[in-house]
Design a protein around this nucleic acid. Structure first.
Lengths: 323, 323
DNA sequence: CGGCTTAGGTCAGGTTCTGGCCTCAATCGG
DNA sequence: CCGATTGAGGCCAGAACCTGACCTAAGCCG
């Protein structure tokens, strides 16, 4: 076994972290004790912190050091990481979506097919229940494909469903030069230069299907204005939400904020009252939040929400009376 | 630079994944082109798939191969992975908790302190809103400390708050030999041999504080029965839930299952009706689920839930009528 | 076709690595 | 306090490996 391969094996062994007696390491790596000590020294020279305990029952141990050593992962661990990152990329964390996709791209891009299959299989299971999913599930493979194309300046073609209807609008094939992925308000957008329309566009990732990269590269253009997030937001404002919900709740702002999470704005009016504002497509969502808070409230707008409240009241009142 | 260090650098460069022209790699690693080609060959011998494109604008590229190469992560990426894994370990995925903690232990254990601080800072932000949090947030550092102690057979001491009251019951210092971490029903438990009480115990992780490892090791004992999960479950059954909820909902089982996630059982009665069963401490939770489903339902038990429904109906009906 | 890039054989010279041997140093148990 | 155990590391000779230079082949693209 070559020296570099042996160093990787050694790192791998040490990462399972229990104390390793020197002679057992030496045996496993099929080298003499002297060479093992030299390998340990080499690792230390590379900046990794290897602890050693002397005396009977001593041994080596890799601990947190100045820099992160190369992670040598088991199959299961890699899958767990990918699934966890996917959840984070879907926006469950906040402010970490972009970095998560970056890491996800790295991990998924290097995962052998067998692991990718296991990840995909798990992906279907992993459901954050309720409306907090905020629309269709993010497809990790799709997202990483796009992220990769952005990073490597690879031209991209994909099917894009136009807005309209749950069954999906018209599907067109687009050929673009991808620029950046933007996570905004629970959704992912791809900012790209459309090669057929000869202009910049932003695409909702959950409407993208069947992406294909050509393997070639293009010379990156500069996005007018430079800020991809601002570009998406600009287009975003033109699409109105269906409902702007405004509710006054007789509960402390903190309690309401906890229930609504980051999906709405809560402003305290006084210690026991606050105003809740949400922009939603589906009125069942604010109803659910309000049900959870369980405090008296008054609907300011829209009227449809009042109707939805009446309907909900009806449901619960008939459930409350025994049959 | 030594050969092994150079190989790691090369892997690191290739993991940023864009095509690298051979001579640029050679320049960066400060070796001749011939040596670079030999290094690439070495990587291939180690089982990593390195693609090469010939001709103008050709270059090297690391792609998914037979095995996962050592991951060389940026600081941000490592933090994202840790946070994502923590979320997964908290039970948002299902069936992946144990593996996530395993991976988390590996990553966190190797993270330099500066990264660990950033992770801890982010941890406070990452809130799954609503009752799905299922109790107190899981502390990543605590969890990994325990996992590490289990894996490495290190004796452990910690403060444990006895059951009783939100303010916490009596706190005692425990000295144990940790055996296994078990994730069950949204919570983590530590199965360990209590050195003072001279018997096996299971501890709820969210009641553990101030853990301290001694650095020594103990000879692992065998858990009677062998199955740690079964052991926790056995103790678990003795603590009754406050409410066993049974509701018949006039909606397809799939719709209800989607709303309730994995926090209750849904059994289809026919295509348009199903039975929902949950075991909860707080009745606001089933109320919230039912509000979200938005379909007629009948409460079988308990009676308290009927009262809660009446109260909810009252709240919504007064909100529905304009002031 | 011609230019560019990877692929890889060969070779000489030098560097590095290995294992064995030795002496220290730290830790633990008796 | 002493001895056993285990890591630390200097030294050395021989072997193994690595490097850079040179050259030829092969694939890709305009």
């Amino acid at each position: 076994m070559s020296t570099s391969a042996r160093m990787l094996s050694l790192l791998s062994l040490l990462q399972t972290h229990r104390y390793w007696p020197g002679d057992e390491l030496a045996t496993r790596l099929e080298v003499s004790g002297r060479t093992l000590r030299r390998d340990i020294e080499r690792l230390r020279d590379l900046g990794y912190a290897v602890d050693a305990t002397r005396g009977v029952a001593g041994g080596y141990q890799l601990r947190a050091g100045g820099q992160l050593p190369p992670l040598l992962l088991e199959d299961d661990e890699a899958v767990a990481i990918a699934v966890g990152l996917r959840t984070a990329a879907a926006g469950s964390v906040g402010g970490l979506e972009e970095t998560s996709v970056q890491a996800l791209t790295k991990v998924v891009g290097l995962m052998p097919p067998r692991l990718r299959r296991r990840m995909d299989a798990l992906q279907s299971q992993t459901d954050t229940p309720g409306p907090w999913r905020g629309g269709p599930t993010v497809d990790a493979t799709l997202l990483t494909t796009l992220a990769q194309a952005c990073r490597d300046d690879e031209p991209l073609a994909f099917d894009y469903a136009a807005r309209g209807g749950a069954s999906g609008g018209e599907v067109t094939r687009r050929r673009v030069e991808p620029h950046r992925l933007v996570s905004l308000g629970r959704r992912w957008y791809l900012v790209a230069y459309d090669r057929d329309r000869l202009d910049w566009r932003s695409f909702r990732v959950d409407r993208i299907a069947a992406p294909a990269t050509s393997g070639t590269r293009f010379r990156p253009r500069e996005l007018p204005g430079g800020d991809a997030v601002a570009y998406v937001q600009a287009g975003f404002r033109r699409i109105p939400h269906r409902y702007d919900v405004r509710v006054q709740v007789s509960a402390p702002a903190a309690a309401v904020a906890w229930a609504v999470g980051s999906y709405g704005d809560v402003v305290a009016i006084d210690d026991a009252t606050c105003r809740l504002e949400m922009a939603v497509d589906d009125l069942r969502w604010p109803v659910m939040v309000l049900a959870q808070v369980g405090a008296p409230f008054v609907v300011d707008s829209p009227d449809d929400l009042r109707a939805e409240c009446a309907r909900t009241a009806e449901l619960f009142s008939s459930a409350a009376t025994p049959r």
